[in-house]
């Protein structure tokens, strides 16, 4: 997996935040994480990738951030459903960006939103995933990329 590929996924998230009022999504230093203990917060929007690179990419964020984000988008309803929708939308933007940039070798599935315990995300344990911490306002979220080459 190349730096360029990773960048496409990170850009996907940044692209989503460009539409928010506070478009300053700050990208932290990426690091590696063992897949035995995947990074996961309250809500996770996950897209599966097949093709020459197999695996998944997900955006995970805490409730507080999503609530704030919903409000900043001018939507007063901060229900769980809306949070799920929002995370799904971020995942959708990631997948749209990846489709456009990476072409047909990356077959990307419809986003799935997982909420709650990190145990619900299963990643191939023999691989490490790239964790890209992001900060929006004072909230920490992350883009996690785990692709087999």
């Amino acid at each position: 997996m190349t730096e360029e590929t990773l960048q496409v996924f990170i850009d996907g998230v940044s692209r989503y935040f460009e539409h928010t009022k506070d478009n300053d999504l700050r990208v932290g230093t990426p690091y590696l994480a063992d897949n035995c203990a995947p990074v996961s917060m309250d809500y996770t929007g996950l897209i599966g990738v097949s093709g020459s690179n197999k695996g998944c990419v997900y955006f995970t964020a805490p409730k507080a951030m999503l609530r704030h984000l919903i409000l900043s988008l001018g939507e007063p309803d901060t229900s769980d459903e809306n949070m799920v929708d929002l995370v799904g939308e971020v995942a959708n933007t990631i997948s749209g960006n990846a489709r456009r940039e990476l072409g047909k070798n990356f077959m990307i599935s419809v986003p799935v939103v997982v909420s709650g315990a990190p145990g619900k995300i299963h990643l191939p344990t023999e691989l490490r995933s790239y964790v890209v911490p992001t900060t929006w306002r004072s909230y920490n979220a992350a883009v996690v990329i785990c692709l087999q080459h």
Binding site: M1, L6, Q7, V132, P133
Partner: peptide, 14 residues
Amino acid sequence: LSGNDFLGLVVHLN
């Protein structure tokens, strides 16, 4: 410098 600049480094580390 920003966090994103370390991306290539992480790929290399992996």
